[in-house]
Amino acid sequence: MLENVLIYGLINGMVLALLAIGFALTFGISGIANFAHGALYILTGYTVWVFLHTLGTPYLLAIFLAMAITALIGAAIYNVILLRIRGMRSSEIIATFALALAILEAFRFFGFVGAKYTLPTFVEGSVSVAGVIVDYQRLILIGVGAGLVGLLWFFTHYTKTGLAFRAIAQVERTALTLGIDSDRMATLSLAFGAALAALAAIVLLPLGQITVETGLNVLLNALAICILGGLGSVTGIVAASLLLGYAQIITVTYIAPHWLMVVTLVAIFVVLLVKPSGLFGKQKELEERV
């Protein structure tokens, strides 16, 4: 039982980190809370499914195509919608939230509901770790999650685009005077965020069924992690993911699966009330929130 909790807690933490990292990246760079994050996640799932089952594309190609499409949609969200309402936080929230509902409910309308909507795992089979059976897909997701976190940290600290991102995130106006195109960076940030949502979907969705309802849960989980960890810090996201990941697994194991979402929601609620800058947040965020 205990080994189970330990291993699946780690896996669940990585799942949460994967879900949250795209949302956090977009928000950290452009200050846009992309409430369509969960919808983009589901969108990728269905796109891959359509490529695989309707068009008969090879799995690997389908994955890349779906990621590219989602990234393009992310960029389009900025250029078509958000560009016109940039800076009006409330309008940004309302517009992206509405867009999320439009995407999700459209899938429901066109009949994307049912048990057949699943993606194949990358590698079949499982392995026994300390007496606990873990399938390969979950091992892969741990690898992808850890790799992604490392890559992202490297990207934002050592590459030109990454540094420009950080500059924009800190002082937008000064960055403008230094010749950094804020609109281009915001477009990129949404495209990256969307691509990360897509990547998460591709790694995670083979573990279960693609459902419309997952969209909102993904958004909530991403919000929960970002709030817990404090927006804009990679370390915070990883720590919060592990924390919440274990908390959820403990709830499921020792209390009841019903309470899983309650734990997440209550965590958001309590952290926002007690320490609005997040458990690992810094001064800047605090001032924005309070």
Partner: peptide, 23 residues
């Protein structure tokens, strides 16, 4: 809390109630 943080709380609260009643 301002802006998106208040929005998040209001989004989350009805869901908490829903899940609690369900559970």
């Amino acid at each position: 809390l301002r802006g998106i943080y208040f929005a998040m709380i209001t989004l989350v609260l009805p869901l908490i109630f829903l899940r609690i009643i369900e559970a």
